[in-house]
Amino acid sequence: MSRVAFTRNLQRHVACPPCVVAGATVQESLDQAFALYPRLRGYVLDEHGALRFHMAVYVDGVPIADRRGLSDPVSAASEIYVMQALSGG
């Protein structure tokens, strides 16, 4: 079971405490998180299911490679972190 955590900046809009999921990919894992917090999906993904331009997802400290299909693999011990793609100062 992997753990998904969300930036605190999202909490202001959608309550989304960390959750535990069982997915083989980022998409499967996030889908389970969105099942818990349905309104969260539109804050993280666009209408086509791609990661929003100014969002970032890390798996075990590494930014995901497939921002469109979210196919990056996730292991049972993975930590998934959803945050803003910081830009500017």
Binding site: N9, L10, H13, R39, G42, Y43, V44, D46, E47, H48, R52, H54, M55, Q84, A85
Partner: peptide, 29 residues
């Protein structure tokens, strides 16, 4: 228009005392 989190729409039926988030348009694939 949340910079990071996309465009959202909220509706109030009590002149702004409370707001609920509602749907947003989706572009075709």
């Amino acid at each position: 228009d949340h910079g990071h989190f996309g465009a959202k729409l909220h509706r109030s039926r009590d002149r702004g005392a409370t707001w609920e988030e509602i749907g947003v348009p989706a572009y075709p694939t």
